[in-house]
C-alpha cells in the first residue's frame, strides 16, 4: 500500500502535468509547448551533453557564492550575535540589505567587475548572505538563557558554551537561514546569467527563446527548478544527519 500522502503527491503531479499537456495542446499560446515536448527536449539535452555543459557553467558562481556566503555569513552572524558592539555596528546593514532589492546593484557590479565570474559570484553573495547572517545572529542571541546559565553553573568555559551549547541550540535556525540563502543564491545565479551575460542554463533559456525553440526553453527552466529543489532537500538531509536530537520541530522559519 502506498501512503495517502505519497499517493496524493503522485496524483497532484499527474494532474499538473496533464494540465500542462492539455494547455500546450490547445495551445493557450504559441509559446506554450506541451509537457511531453518539453520533457523530450529535456532528455535530449541531457543525452547530448548540453545540459551537463550548461550546468558546469551555472554551478560555478552558484557554488562559489553559496560557499562564501555560508562561511562568511555564519561567521559574521556568530560574531554579531555574541558581541553587542558588532551587533550595533553590522546588524543595520544586513537588515537594510535583507529588505532591499539588492538585484538593483547588478548594473553597478558589472561596471565595476566586468561580465566575468567575479560579478556573478558577487550577485550570488549579495542575494544569499543577508538572510544567513541575520538568521545566525538572531539564533545566537535567542539561545535560551537557562541553557547558558546551566553551562556556567556546571563550570563550562566560554569556548565550551559556544561550541557545546550556543551553536547546537542555534543550528536549526542557522540551517533555515542556509536554506533561504541557497534559494536566494539560485535566484541570483539565474538572474546573473540572464542579465549579465548568457552562460550556462541562462544561455539555453535566452538562446532557445531567440530561435523560438520553446520546448528547450521550458526544459531548461524545469531543470533549474528541479535542481534547486533537490539541492535544498540535500541540505535538509545534511541537517538531520548532523543534528539528530534536534528533530523536535521547535523552530519554524
Amino acid at each position: 500500500m502506498i501512503k495517502r500522502a505519497n499517493l496524493l503527491k503522485i496524483v497532484s503531479a499527474v494532474v499538473l502535468c496533464s494540465a500542462w499537456e492539455i494547455a500546450g495542446r490547445i495551445p493557450v499560446s504559441y509559446a506554450f509547448p506541451t509537457f511531453l515536448d518539453s520533457m523530450r527536449s529535456f532528455f535530449e539535452m541531457i543525452g547530448n551533453g548540453m545540459m551537463l555543459e550548461a550546468y558546469k557553467e551555472t554551478l560555478q558562481p552558484l557554488v562559489i557564492g553559496v560557499l562564501i556566503s555560508a562561511f562568511l555569513g555564519i561567521g559574521l552572524g556568530l560574531w554579531i550575535g555574541l558581541n553587542n558592539f558588532f551587533d550595533w555596528l553590522f546588524s543595520p546593514i544586513f537588515i537594510v540589505m535583507q529588505a532591499a532589492p539588492l538585484a538593483a546593484l547588478i548594473p553597478l557590479l558589472v561596471l565595476a567587475y566586468g561580465i566575468g565570474l567575479t560579478s556573478k559570484v558577487m550577485v550570488v553573495c549579495i542575494m544569499a548572505m543577508p538572510v544567513i547572517v541575520l538568521n545566525t545572529s538572531g539564533a545566537v542571541r535567542n539561545t535560551p538563557e537557562s541553557f547558558k546559565e546551566m553551562g556556567k553553573s556546571f563550570l563550562a568555559s566560554r569556548a565550551s558554551i559556544l561550541l557545546r551549547i550556543i551553536i547546537p541550540a542555534a543550528s536549526p535556525v542557522i540551517f533555515a537561514g542556509l536554506r533561504l540563502g541557497v534559494s536566494a543564491g539560485f535566484i541570483g545565479a539565474i538572474l546573473a546569467e540572464l542579465k549579465i551575460t548568457p552562460t550556462g542554463v541562462g544561455d539555453i533559456i535566452t538562446y532557445s527563446r531567440s530561435i523560438a525553440d520553446y520546448p528547450s526553453m521550458y526544459a531548461a527552466i524545469f531543470s533549474i527548478i528541479l535542481l534547486a529543489v533537490l539541492f535544498l532537500n540535500l541540505i535538509e538531509k545534511l541537517e538531520t544527519v548532523l543534528f539528530k536530537g534536534n528533530q523536535r520541530g521547535y523552530v519554524s522559519d
Binding site: R4, S12, R179, L180, S183, Y214, M217, I225, A228, V229
Partner: peptide, 26 residues
C-alpha cells in the same frame, strides 16, 4: 492541502527568476 502543498513548497524556494523569460514570451 495535500494536493497543493508540495507545489507551494517547490515554488517558495524555486529560482523564480528563471520564469521571467517565459512570462516575457507569454
Amino acid at each position: 492541502d495535500e494536493l497543493l502543498l508540495p507545489w507551494v513548497n517547490v515554488f517558495l524556494s524555486a529560482p523564480l527568476t528563471a520564469l521571467v523569460p517565459v512570462l516575457m514570451v507569454l
